[in-house]
Simulated scan of single mutants.
Amino acid sequence: MKITLNVNGDAYPLDVEPRRILADVLREDCGLTGTHLGCEHGVCGACTVLVDGSAVRSCLMFAVQCDGSTVRTVEGLSGPDGEPHPLQRAFSAEHALQCGFCTPGFLMVAAGALEADPALGDDPEAVAGLVGSNLCRCTGYEPIRRAIARAARERQNTAT
């Protein structure tokens, strides 16, 4: 099927098999390898991307379902000059990554949530619930929670 994906601001006209998952198309056809495949069952969250602003598990979505949609991957977080996104800076400052495999999924689920609700970082239980939606084997989750809260605070401070 012929589809067009708008990924990180670029149009990708593609011819894809209807059964191909979005994660594979992003990685193989668009060359955006920041989206990682872990469990391929929608459990781990390493493949999380934003589709029309909502966090989705790209291993569970067919690429044809996204025809005409706006997709944002971890490569699309950085600014126009390549400056890191506030979440990326916070993850670094809080040591919220170790092996880095799960990091793109955490960054994208957090970006979507903070864009939808900038005050989310003020609610430790909400941040914990958000972080609990993805799996990490290395950090113990606390640094990730701190990083999300830090990015939310910094965003609020620059907005005022």
Rank of each mutant, 00 (worst) to 15 (best):
F106T: 01
L60S: 07
V51S: 00
S92Y: 12
E125R: 14
S92L: 12
V127S: 14
A23K: 14
D117H: 04
D81F: 09
R72I: 08
G112V: 00
T70H: 10
D81R: 15
G132H: 10
A113Q: 07
E83F: 04
C39K: 11
R57L: 11
A128N: 04
D15C: 04
P104H: 13
V71C: 06
M108V: 06
P118K: 00
L5W: 12
A159L: 08
G121R: 01
L130S: 11
G79L: 14
G105V: 08
E28I: 07
A149M: 14
D67K: 11
M1L: 06
A126P: 07
A151K: 06
G132Q: 13
R146W: 07
R145F: 00
A152H: 01
G53D: 00
E40M: 04
E154R: 11
V71N: 01
P118H: 00
R137Y: 12
P86H: 08
A116Q: 13
G82P: 08
I144C: 10
N134E: 09
V64P: 01
Q98F: 10
V25D: 03
R57G: 01
E125Y: 05
V74S: 03
L87I: 08
D122A: 15
R155M: 12
E83K: 14
R150M: 15
P84W: 05
A11W: 06
R20A: 10
A159M: 08
G38P: 14
A147S: 05
E17T: 12
H41L: 08
E17W: 12
E125N: 14
M1C: 06
S58E: 08
S54L: 06
S78I: 07
E75A: 07
E154C: 06
V25L: 05
T35L: 00
C47V: 08
Q88W: 03
A11Q: 12
G132S: 13
P13G: 14
A90R: 06
G9V: 05
S78V: 11
P104S: 14
E17L: 13
A23T: 13
E83T: 15
E28K: 12
V109K: 05
P124G: 09
G42S: 03
L87A: 06
V127L: 10
D29G: 07
H95V: 07
R20G: 04
A55N: 04
L135G: 01
D24G: 10
G38V: 05
V127N: 09
S69W: 00
L120M: 02
F106I: 02
L87M: 08
C59A: 08
S69H: 02
S133Q: 13
N6Q: 12
G100Q: 11
G45H: 04
P143Q: 03
G34M: 04
L14M: 09
R146K: 14
L87R: 12
A152Y: 01
H95E: 15
G140W: 02
F91D: 04
A113C: 08
G76I: 03
L114T: 01
T160I: 05
G45F: 04
A93E: 15
L107W: 12
M1H: 14
D52M: 00
L120Y: 01
P13K: 11
T73L: 03
G68M: 06
M108F: 09
R155L: 13
M108W: 02
C138Y: 07
A90Q: 03
C99S: 09
Y12W: 15
E142S: 13
G121I: 12
L37Q: 13
G129T: 06
H85N: 05
E40D: 15
D67P: 12
C30V: 09
R146Y: 05
H41W: 03
